[in-house]
Amino acid sequence: MSGWKEIILLEEKGISVDEFVSGFETPNKLILLEGCLDKWPTLKKLDRDYLVEVCGDNRFAVGPAQMTLTDYFVYSDQAQEERPLYLFDPKFANKRPDYRWIIIGPAGSGSSFHIDPNSTLAWNAVVKGSKKWVLFPPDVVPPGVYLSSNGAEVACPVSITEWFMNFYESTKTWKKKPIECVCKAGEVIFVPNGWWHLVINLEDSIAIRQNFVNRRNL
């Protein structure tokens, strides 16, 4: 796991809230937490069968379109394109503004490099499946990513697959190499604000993400 020195694997019982705030949230450091969801009843229940049963006819945001959850699973089971559509919906449990999302996608789907908006930090909890993360600190712009002169606009014109094919190997020689990890079901990754990240589903996955602003960056 390249660059793993900056991420510490800790059991839930091994870190307190105060230790997390002082050791990771305040200094803006990454952390991958194991065991955080062990006592969360929804972890065992929140699979595709349950979701179809309770909200299969509801429409969710899927890329630029709206699609019922039942139709989305029919699509995702057959998806073979390079960029499978990714269900990324903020309305399932939200009041405005958007801050919490349910994320569902087949293997190969995901998000190309970006920084979370409005200087927010994020929790990403994997409920089913697994996700590969590639992350760069705020002062390192990933290769293949282009910023406007004022930094307000970000363009990543290549797909996730193309990025791995064309740019990934070159980062192995960088002084500041990317940090990589696989977040599995039951694990939670904390993404500090300003960090570049790319995420790809290694298998059919369901996750919950919540963004927030803390005292440090309010």
Rank of each mutant, 00 (worst) to 15 (best):
V191A: 03
A93C: 14
N118T: 13
K184C: 06
I102H: 03
V52T: 10
P64G: 07
C36P: 11
V158Q: 15
I8F: 03
P192K: 00
W101Y: 06
W101R: 01
V62N: 03
C156Y: 07
N193R: 15
K131H: 11
F164D: 08
F167I: 05
G110M: 02
K177F: 04
E203M: 07
T171M: 07
R215T: 08
K177R: 15
M67C: 09
P178I: 11
A207F: 00
N94M: 11
D116P: 03
E19Q: 15
W196H: 00
I8Q: 11
L121D: 08
A65P: 01
P106Y: 07
E169P: 01
V62M: 03
L10R: 13
G3N: 04
A61F: 07
S16C: 02
G129M: 12
Y50Q: 05
V134Y: 12
V145Q: 08
R83M: 10
Q80T: 14
F92C: 12
F73S: 01
T171C: 09
K39P: 01
Q80D: 11
G56I: 04
P41D: 07
T173M: 10
P178V: 11
N118K: 14
D71S: 10
N201W: 05
K184T: 07
V199H: 05
Q66N: 08
F136M: 07
V17K: 11
P143M: 12
L135Q: 07
T171L: 03
C181V: 06
E53A: 13
W196S: 02
N214Q: 00
P142V: 09
Y168T: 05
S149W: 12
V17M: 06
W174G: 04
N193G: 10
N214M: 00
K177P: 00
S2P: 02
K29C: 04
L37H: 05
W195S: 04
K172R: 11
I206H: 01
Y75T: 02
L51W: 04
A79T: 06
K29S: 07
D57I: 01
A61P: 00
Y50C: 06
F73R: 02
F88K: 00
S112A: 09
A125V: 03
T161K: 13
G105A: 10
G108C: 03
K177Y: 05
Q78E: 14
E19L: 05
P97G: 11
F60V: 08
C55L: 03
C183I: 15
W195Y: 13
K131W: 09
T42F: 13
P41R: 10
C181E: 01
N124M: 09
N118F: 13
R100K: 15
V158T: 14
D116F: 07
T26Q: 04
Y168P: 00
P117R: 03
N150T: 14
D204N: 07
H114N: 01
A185M: 06
K44F: 06
P117L: 10
I31L: 09
L37R: 02
V158W: 09
I115F: 05
G56K: 04
G105K: 12
E53T: 13
E187K: 01
Y75W: 06
D47H: 13
G23N: 10
A125S: 15
K184N: 11
